[in-house]
Lab assay of single mutants.
Amino acid sequence: NNDALSPAIRRLLAEWNLDASAIKGTGVGGRLTREDVEKHLAKA
């Protein structure tokens, strides 16, 4: 759900053309954090 994404995370996902549903969020309530996105990018 994009409503739970911060503007910074939305921008990062758009910049790298990533799908938020493909990344497991570790923040409060399962929210994506910058670290989650960076770890996903490191694996790719």
Rank of each mutant, 00 (worst) to 15 (best):
N1A: 14
N1F: 08
N1G: 13
N1P: 14
N1S: 13
N1L: 13
N1I: 12
N2Q: 12
N2M: 13
N2I: 13
N2D: 14
N2P: 13
N2W: 05
N2V: 13
N2K: 11
D3Q: 12
D3Y: 04
D3A: 11
D3F: 05
D3V: 09
D3W: 04
D3G: 11
A4L: 14
A4H: 14
A4Y: 15
A4R: 13
A4C: 12
A4K: 12
L5V: 10
L5C: 11
L5F: 07
L5P: 04
L5G: 04
L5K: 02
L5I: 13
L5A: 05
S6T: 12
S6V: 05
S6L: 07
S6N: 06
P7I: 11
P7H: 11
P7T: 10
P7R: 09
P7K: 09
P7Q: 13
P7D: 15
A8N: 06
A8Q: 10
A8C: 15
A8R: 07
I9E: 01
I9L: 13
I9V: 11
I9P: 00
I9H: 01
I9D: 00
I9S: 00
R10A: 09
R10V: 10
R10S: 06
R10L: 14
R11H: 09
R11S: 08
L12Y: 05
L12S: 00
L12R: 02
L12G: 00
L12H: 01
L12W: 06
L12T: 01
L13R: 00
L13C: 13
L13K: 00
L13W: 03
L13E: 00
L13V: 04
L13A: 01
L13Y: 01
L13M: 05
A14V: 07
A14S: 08
A14M: 13
A14H: 09
A14P: 01
E15T: 09
E15S: 09
E15D: 10
E15Y: 15
E15F: 15
E15A: 13
E15H: 15
N17H: 10
N17L: 06
N17E: 09
N17M: 06
N17F: 06
N17G: 15
N17Y: 05
L18M: 06
L18D: 02
L18S: 02
L18A: 03
L18Y: 03
L18I: 14
L18H: 04
L18V: 09
L18N: 02
D19W: 08
D19A: 07
D19H: 07
D19Q: 07
D19C: 11
D19N: 08
D19E: 12
D19R: 05
D19L: 09
D19Y: 06
D19I: 07
D19F: 05
A20Y: 06
A20R: 05
A20D: 05
A20E: 09
A20M: 06
A20F: 06
A20I: 08
A20T: 05
S21A: 12
S21R: 09
S21N: 12
S21H: 07
S21L: 07
S21M: 09
A22M: 14
A22H: 11
A22G: 06
A22D: 15
I23G: 01
I23K: 00
I23R: 01
I23W: 04
I23M: 06
I23Q: 01
I23E: 00
I23S: 01
I23A: 01
K24W: 08
K24T: 14
K24E: 12
K24S: 09
K24A: 10
K24F: 09
G25K: 05
G25W: 04
G25Y: 02
G25I: 04
G25E: 02
G25H: 07
T26N: 04
T26A: 02
T26E: 02
G27N: 03
G27H: 01
G27T: 02
G27V: 02
G27E: 01
G27Y: 03
G27P: 02
V28Y: 10
V28W: 09
V28I: 13
G29F: 06
G29D: 11
G29K: 06
G29M: 08
G29E: 06
G29P: 03
G30D: 04
G30K: 03
G30N: 05
G30A: 04
G30Y: 01
R31K: 12
R31F: 06
R31V: 13
R31Q: 13
R31G: 06
R31M: 14
L32M: 05
L32F: 04
L32H: 00
L32G: 00
L32C: 05
L32T: 02
T33S: 05
T33A: 01
T33Y: 02
T33M: 05
T33C: 05
T33I: 05
T33N: 03
T33V: 04
R34N: 07
R34K: 13
R34G: 04
R34S: 06
E35I: 08
E35V: 08
E35Q: 11
E35S: 09
E35T: 09
E35A: 12
E35D: 09
E35Y: 11
E35W: 13
D36W: 03
D36Y: 01
D36R: 01
D36I: 02
V37I: 14
V37P: 00
V37L: 08
V37Q: 00
E38K: 07
E38S: 06
E38W: 15
K39M: 14
K39P: 02
K39T: 10
K39R: 14
K39D: 08
K39H: 11
K39Q: 12
H40P: 00
H40F: 15
H40T: 05
H40Q: 05
H40A: 14
H40R: 03
H40E: 06
L41Q: 04
L41A: 06
L41T: 03
A42N: 09
A42S: 10
A42G: 08
A42C: 14
A42D: 07
A42V: 09
K43D: 11
K43Y: 12
K43Q: 13
K43C: 13
K43G: 10
K43N: 12
A44P: 06
A44D: 07
A44H: 13
A44I: 15
A44W: 15
A44F: 15
A44G: 09
A44Y: 15
